[in-house]
C-alpha cells in the first residue's frame, strides 16, 4: 500500500446472479482513498457506486452478489497492519465495520429503525465496539455526538423516535451514529440526494467540519457534480461498473479527459455561467442495459469521438499526468491505438 492511502481497492470484480440474468456490476474497479482527504465518486445510477461501497463494508446482498476477483486493502492505524478486507473472517470484519469504517446512506427517512429511539440506536453502535463502556457512558456519548452534529437540545432529542425528526435531522443522526466510534473512513453514499439544497448545504458543511475535527477520510458518493466539486480532493468517475477517469478535483473540472466526464459536465445547467434556454450539449443516448453491455469501450455507443477500435476492444487505464488516469483510446499512445 502507498503510505499516503488508508484504503486501496484493486481490480474489484463483482457479479450479481439474478433471475433475470447475470450482471457484472463491477468490472475491475480500482481506487485509492488518501488519508484525511475526501474522495468523490461520481456517475449515473447503476454504474456501481453503491456496490463498490458495500464491497468495502462486506455488506453485499447475499446470495446474489459474488466478489469474483480483487483486493481491498485497509491500513489499521492502531496496529499499523495492512489487511485485505476481502480475506478477513466475518468475526474480525465486524470489528472494522461500523468501528473503523462507517457508512451512511441516501434515504434518511428509512435508514433508522422506527421502533427504537435515536439514542438507543447510537448507544448500540457505541457499545458494540466498546464492550467495557457502561450504558450510562454510552448515553452520554450519544448526547455528545448529537450535539456535535448540531441537533438542538440533544439531552431531549436523544429520546426521540426517528419519526419525530425531519429528514435533515435524521441524516444528522446517521452521521452522529457513524462517527460515534471515531472511524478512520466514512463512506457517505448519496448522503444529501433526498434533501433540500439548504439542508444539503448544512450537511456537507457539517461533514467538512467533522472531517477536520476527527481527522478521517471520506468517500463521498454522489451523482451531483456540484457536490463533489466543492467537497472532494480527488474524484473517481464511474461508468457501467468501471472507473473511467480518476484525477485531483481541479483537473477533473478544468481539464476532463474522458468523453464521459466531459459529457457529464456539459449536461448540467450552471448558476455561474450559461445563457437562458441555451442548448445543453450533454450526452446522447441512454445507459445500456447492465444485462447486455456493448462490446469494446462501454461508452462508445454514446461517445461523439468513437472510432473502430473503441467498438471492439476495451481501453486500458493510462496515467496521463501524476494522479490523473483515464481509460480511453483517445489518450493511449498512437501505436497502441492502431495496432
Amino acid at each position: 500500500m502507498d503510505k499516503s492511502n488508508i484504503l486501496e481497492i484493486k481490480d474489484l470484480h463483482v457479479t450479481f446472479y439474478t433471475e433475470d440474468g447475470v450482471v457484472r456490476a463491477l468490472h475491475g474497479v480500482s481506487y485509492d482513498v488518501p488519508e484525511n482527504e475526501t474522495l468523490g465518486v461520481v456517475g449515473e445510477s447503476g454504474c456501481g457506486k453503491s456496490v463498490t461501497a458495500l464491497s468495502v463494508m462486506r455488506l453485499l446482498p447475499r446470495p446474489q452478489a459474488r466478489v469474483e476477483q480483487g483486493e481491498i486493502w485497509f491500513r489499521d492505524k492502531d496496529t499499523g497492519e495492512e489487511i485485505n478486507l476481502l480475506n478477513l473472517p466475518e468475526e474480525h470484519m465486524r470489528h472494522i465495520r461500523g468501528n473503523k469504517i462507517s457508512m451512511i446512506f441516501q434515504e434518511p427517512m428509512t435508514a433508522l429503525n422506527p421502533v427504537y429511539t435515536v439514542g438507543d440506536q447510537i448507544e448500540e453502535a457505541v457499545l458494540i465496539h466498546n464492550p467495557k463502556m457502561s450504558q450510562k457512558e454510552a448515553r452520554e456519548r450519544a448526547i455528545e455526538m448529537l450535539k456535535t452534529v448540531g441537533i438542538p437540545a440533544p439531552e431531549k432529542r436523544v429520546d426521540d423516535f426517528p419519526h419525530q425528526m425531519s429528514g435533515g435531522m435524521r441524516q444528522r443522526v446517521m452521521i452522529a451514529m457513524a462517527l460515534s466510534t471515531n472511524p478512520e473512513i466514512l463512506i457517505a453514499d448519496e448522503p444529501t440526494t433526498a434533501l433540500d439544497v439548504t439542508i444539503q448545504a448544512q450537511i456537507l458543511e457539517l461533514m467538512n467540519k467533522l472531517q477536520e475535527q476527527f481527522g478521517m477520510s471520506i468517500i463521498l458518493i454522489t451523482h451531483n457534480l456540484g457536490v463533489v466539486a466543492q467537497n472532494a480532493d480527488k474524484i473517481a468517475v464511474m461508468y457501467l461498473g468501471r472507473i473511467v477517469e480518476k484525477a485531483p478535483v481541479r483537473e477533473i473540472f478544468h481539464d476532463p479527459k474522458h468523453p464521459y466526464t466531459e459529457g457529464l459536465l456539459a449536461s448540467v445547467p450552471r448558476l455561474d455561467k450559461g445563457g437562458l434556454k441555451e442548448h445543453l450539449p450533454g450526452i446522447s443516448g441512454s445507459l445500456p442495459s447492465p444485462y447486455n453491455p456493448p462490446p469494446g469501450c462501454k461508452f462508445h455507443p454514446r461517445c461523439p469521438y468513437a472510432f473502430d477500435k473503441c467498438r471492439v476492444e476495451e481501453p486500458p487505464q493510462v496515467e496521463i499526468s501524476p494522479g490523473h488516469t483515464v481509460c480511453c483510446w483517445l489518450h493511449t499512445k498512437e501505436e497502441t491505438r492502431h495496432e
Binding site: N224, L265, V268, L271
Partner: peptide, 18 residues
C-alpha cells in the same frame, strides 16, 4: 442561491448558511 452546489472547485461566493 448560495446553497446551490456549483460544479467548479474554484467558484467562490459568500455563503449564507440557513
Amino acid at each position: 442561491l448560495s446553497a446551490v452546489p456549483v460544479p467548479d472547485p474554484d467558484y467562490k461566493r459568500d455563503r449564507i448558511l440557513l
